[in-house]
Simulated assay, not measured.
Amino acid sequence: MDGFIFSLVMLVVIGLLQAFVPYWVKETIVFGVTVPDQQVYHPVVKASKKIYTLTLLGLLAIIIVGYVLWHLNSTVNDELLIIVGIILQFILIGISMLMYLILHNKITELKKVEEWGAELKQVKVTDWSVRARDEMLPIFYFLLPIFVVGGLIIYTYSQYPLLPENIATHWGPNGQPDAFTNKNRFSVIAIPLILLVMQIMFAGIIELTRRSGIKISVTRTKQSIRQQLAMRKYSSWFMFLMTMLITILFSILQLTTIHSDLVGESTMLTMFIVFIFITIIGSIAFAVKLSSLGDSKGDNYSTSGITDVDEDQYWIGGLIYFNRNDPSVFVEKRFGVGWTVNLARPIAIACIFGPIVLILLISIFA
């Protein structure tokens, strides 16, 4: 039952987040395509957003009904329920991406045929004083958990003789370990090392985001500044929340390896449930908060004869950003909530693949 509830909640959350993305991003970015202010209410633009949202909501309803009926009319364990739930989530995401690509090409072709913005002068705005108003959390917040993990590693080695000969490496849906490896000097700190890699990654993302450019709209100057500053602030808060949740979860798992009677089975299961729900609630709150800062709030400024610089040429499919002229490592996504990397910057490649490689190496050698 627990596995079914988790999967059902995740399906609903992912489905709703995907369905309403077109209404959460900037009005002047439609399915990854730059749209001048004069065309944001174009009939095709409005219809495309509506079709995308209603189709995904209908698909989500069908998947949920089918998943619930299958659960009620069959006797399967939680593990299979979770596996099927994950598969359904990927199917939903895959269909949403297919629809996105179709509509991206449709808007791109429409923009080309109707020559949107051809008569407008492209202008780029820079205001260095905006950085003084940046309220992102300082890097110090993200360094504290790293020191905690360092202390956890030291404590683990101090208790090495008391550790069991089989070290847990995986935990099942019930919160109990279901996979083990032999005890050695490396395997006993594998979990803290993985945690350390993730913490350093989070700290790096925050610092590189802080140094990235703040893009200001020439036609929506005040709104774009407010939106950009809020985006940076709330992103840092959300990242800190995730850092703390992961640190607490992994630390408890590590301590239960050292002291097997520290946490009971019911407490461990409750901990996993709390972790999942706080993550879900935090993600929803983050997305909703950012959606309330849309460009439609407030008045437009200096809209006559000018428009923002069209950067479509730097976005592959509206999803992948590659711009050698932009020193920023992280930029705001064109579709979805959050940030993506500028693949033209070598450090961006390191941010993506470095942690993955390190975690894989730790898992292999552990």
Rank of each mutant, 00 (worst) to 15 (best):
I5K: 08
I5H: 02
V9R: 05
L11H: 05
G15D: 06
G15K: 03
G15N: 08
V25I: 12
T34Q: 14
P36H: 05
P36S: 01
D37V: 11
Q39G: 07
V45Y: 05
K46A: 13
K50L: 12
I51L: 15
Y52I: 06
T53S: 12
T53N: 03
L54M: 15
L57Q: 08
A61M: 10
I62G: 00
I63C: 00
V65P: 02
G66D: 02
Y67M: 00
Y67H: 10
V68N: 08
L72G: 01
S74M: 10
L80V: 13
G85V: 02
I87Y: 09
I87T: 09
L88T: 03
L88D: 07
I91Q: 08
L92A: 01
I93Y: 11
I93H: 03
M99A: 06
Y100M: 00
I102P: 02
L103E: 00
H104Y: 09
L110P: 03
K111M: 06
K111Q: 04
K112T: 09
E114R: 11
G117Y: 06
A118T: 12
E119A: 14
W128C: 12
R133T: 02
F140H: 13
L143H: 11
I146V: 11
V148T: 10
V149Q: 08
G151E: 09
T156N: 00
T156M: 10
Y160T: 07
L162R: 13
L162Y: 13
N166S: 15
W171F: 14
W171I: 01
P173Y: 01
G175D: 04
P177K: 02
P177G: 02
P177H: 05
I189V: 12
I189Q: 04
I194D: 02
V197R: 06
Q199I: 05
M201G: 07
M201E: 13
F202H: 06
F202T: 09
A203W: 11
R210L: 05
R211M: 03
T221L: 09
Q223F: 05
I225K: 15
R226H: 14
Q228F: 07
L229W: 03
L229N: 08
S235V: 05
F240D: 11
M244A: 13
M244C: 15
T247D: 01
Q254L: 01
L255D: 00
L262H: 04
V263G: 07
G264Y: 00
G264C: 04
E265N: 14
F272P: 01
I273P: 09
T279W: 08
G282P: 03
G282S: 00
A287H: 09
G294A: 12
S296D: 13
K297A: 04
G298Y: 10
T303W: 10
T303K: 13
S304Q: 14
Q313M: 13
W315S: 04
G318E: 03
G318R: 00
L319Y: 02
I320C: 05
N323V: 03
S328H: 01
F330E: 08
V331K: 09
E332S: 11
E332L: 10
G338H: 12
N342I: 03
R345V: 00
R345H: 01
P346W: 11
I347A: 04
F353P: 04
P355Q: 01
I359F: 06
L360P: 01
L361N: 04
I362G: 07
S363C: 12
I364N: 07
